[in-house]
């Protein structure tokens, strides 16, 4: 059992890959935004890579242990401490009943992850423990963790002292700039050549009005092809308006003139075009970027995006633990 002493800023229970199979009823998958760090945390404590664990964003929680446990902290550097003594990240360690884990503000990256041997024992809602807090779904009570809440952990023995091999850890930028892969489509033929060139050359600023549903980007206006302006009226008459359609997760969704990347808790359908899509293997970078940092997009093909995903899945395996 864990006791939440301080909840931090929107600390939530997530599992991987989350709530899959309900996109046609409007349920997003949720799950950890940086699944690379999340999966490695689980593997460190001997869990299946997708077992329920904790995602902390920007400002971490303080957690008191009601029982002995094995844990691992990965992801953003939140200067983790056990009873005021700094502890290593990317490494499993044993904690005793009554000890206190504190995660502070994220120094590098934005989201920290904590896995516990056995995994968090949260009820499954449509097959997943992941929290989709804007709709009140999943986790313990549909919402982020609150002070005073008790979080049950399944009993299991982890092995302390396991480490993630150095070359298998994600590296987070320290200069506020992120290179992020993007795949053309599905609605790329609504944007003209100048618009695409601008998407790939501009440093897009991540807006503070961003959350786990969408990442709003600040930048110049988009330019369109004739298709976007000469169309049936039921699309809606703004150039980026299209008859409502299913959205890929990761879509760069053009809300009016504002590009919004649809992330883990994003909407499944809507009436704006999606000229680009961020592939799943690049989501961890989105998860670790803070507002006012910059994205530089580089184009890759569908095949390259699928190869990157295979590579990431291979990294998120017990081979990476020593």
């Amino acid at each position: 059992m864990l006791e939440i002493i301080k909840p931090g800023l929107e600390t939530s229970i997530q599992d991987y890959p989350g709530r899959i199979g309900y996109w046609n009823q409007g349920f997003p998958p949720s799950g950890p935004m940086d699944s690379w760090s999340f999966r490695l945390a689980n593997l460190l404590v001997g869990n299946a890579a997708g077992a329920p664990g904790i995602e902390a964003q920007y400002m971490g929680p303080t957690i008191k242990f009601g029982a002995d446990a094995t844990l691992a902290v990965t992801g953003a550097d939140m200067r983790p401490k056990l009873d005021d003594k700094p502890i290593p990240m990317w490494e499993s360690l044993a904690v005793k009943t009554g000890q206190m884990l504190t995660l502070g503000p994220a120094v590098n990256g934005a989201r920290g992850y904590v896995a516990f041997a056995g995994g968090i024992d949260a009820p499954l809602m449509l097959g997943s423990a992941s929290t989709f807090h804007k709709a009140g779904v999943g986790g313990l009570d549909g919402h982020a963790l609150k002070a005073g809440q008790s979080v049950p952990v399944k009993r299991a023995n982890g092995t302390p002292g396991k480490k993630v091999k150095a070359e298998r850890r994600p590296s987070f930028t320290s200069d506020k700039n992120w290179k992020v892969e993007a795949v053309r489509g599905p609605n790329d033929d609504w944007v003209d050549a100048a618009g695409h060139k601008q998407f790939l050359s501009f440093a897009w600023k991540l807006s503070a009005r961003s959350d786990r549903t969408g990442y709003r980007l600040e930048g110049p206006d988009w330019t369109f092809t004739e298709k976007a302006t000469n169309k049936a009226p039921e699309h809606g008459n703004f150039p980026s308006n299209i008859i409502d359609q299913g959205y890929p997760l990761g879509a760069v969704n053009l809300g009016g003139q504002t590009p919004i990347i649809l992330v883990n808790d994003g909407p499944s359908m809507g009436g704006f075009i999606c000229p680009w899509t961020i592939p799943s293997a690049a989501f961890w970078k989105l998860g670790q970027a803070k507002p006012n940092e910059f994205f530089h997009f580089n184009e890759i093909s569908v095949d390259e995006a699928q190869a990157l995903r295979r590579k990431l899945d291979a990294i998120c395996s017990p081979d990476s633990i020593e």
């Binding site: 409007g26 003139q257 504002t258 499944s268 359908m269 809507g270």
Partner: peptide, 30 residues
């Protein structure tokens, strides 16, 4: 269809005399 958010219905008017159109917000609401 259902989508966008859990349970949200996407609706099409069946009577063409009630067919009206409008643009979506620019930018969308939070």
């Amino acid at each position: 269809s259902l989508g966008f958010w859990p349970g949200l219905p996407f609706l099409m008017p069946l009577d063409p005399r009630a067919m009206i159109t409008c643009p979506k917000y620019n930018p969308p609401r939070t």
